[in-house]
Computed example of a mutant assay.
Amino acid sequence: MTDEHAPATPATPAVPATPAELVRRFADRLADLGLTEAQAATRAGMSIAYLRRVLDLGCDFDRPALLRLAAVLGLEYQELVSGRPEERLHAAAPDADSAPLVGPPLLGELTVPECWTRLGPGGLGRLARTGPDGPVVRPVGYLVHDRTILYRTNPDGALAPDANREAAFEVDRTDPKLHEGWSVLMTGALEYVTDLALLAELPQPPAHGRWVRLTPGTVTGRTIRTASAR
């Protein structure tokens, strides 16, 4: 994901991760994407044993292998080895959150391509729809595929497809230290994923679960930030 809409900040040095930090960042990203270690290793063209060796030995061992892992995880190389820009900024200036806020919040809009960029290859979001008993909002782990949203659910659950009802999908992120955030909202119809080739590539859902696709008809995004006094 990009940070082209964040307030301009001085460049901060990229501090290479320790092996422990690299392993933690790798594991966190796997959880966000719903991938297993074996799936990540296969997509990066290496064995699980070699993947673990790359992570354990860190940035000085096999940089091309780390580049492949970063691509599999939908991250830039520096995001994998040194953290996202906001992490590096806070590491370089740990008192950045102590500056007082000044002025009203500044709102902005994201273009449709920027919205998809913010979503990345997957993560955590919310799905909302109206059911027989009123509005229903549930957290979901999602993947992005060909400008659609994929998630898993119980066929008997509140988030199962219904030909007569559309759904809203929303993802937002905030950073209280940088005093900024963004939100992406899309609405569209739901349907079960039936493409066998695609299903073979996706993580297997629980025995009672199925993959669902949301094809958005509308995509909108907003940014918000508050200036801080320096």
Rank of each mutant, 00 (worst) to 15 (best):
L107C: 14
C59V: 12
V171A: 03
W211N: 00
V72N: 02
A65F: 02
D32Q: 12
V136W: 01
G134R: 05
G58A: 01
E180R: 11
L89R: 07
A167E: 10
E79C: 13
T226L: 11
R63A: 14
L30R: 08
A229D: 10
A207C: 12
V137W: 05
A93D: 13
L89G: 11
A6K: 12
R53G: 05
A6S: 14
A6P: 04
R63E: 05
T9K: 13
A38W: 08
G45L: 10
C59Y: 11
A6Q: 10
P176C: 11
R29M: 02
L22Q: 00
D172F: 06
L127N: 04
T18V: 14
V136A: 04
I224T: 11
A14K: 06
R52L: 06
L33F: 00
G217N: 13
L30P: 09
D133N: 15
P7V: 02
S47A: 09
E86Q: 08
W116D: 03
A168G: 07
S228N: 15
V137T: 08
P121S: 04
N164F: 15
G157W: 01
A197G: 12
A27N: 11
A49I: 13
W182A: 04
L80S: 11
D162N: 08
G181H: 05
L51S: 03
A99G: 07
E4Q: 12
A168Q: 04
P85Y: 07
D133M: 03
G34I: 00
G209W: 03
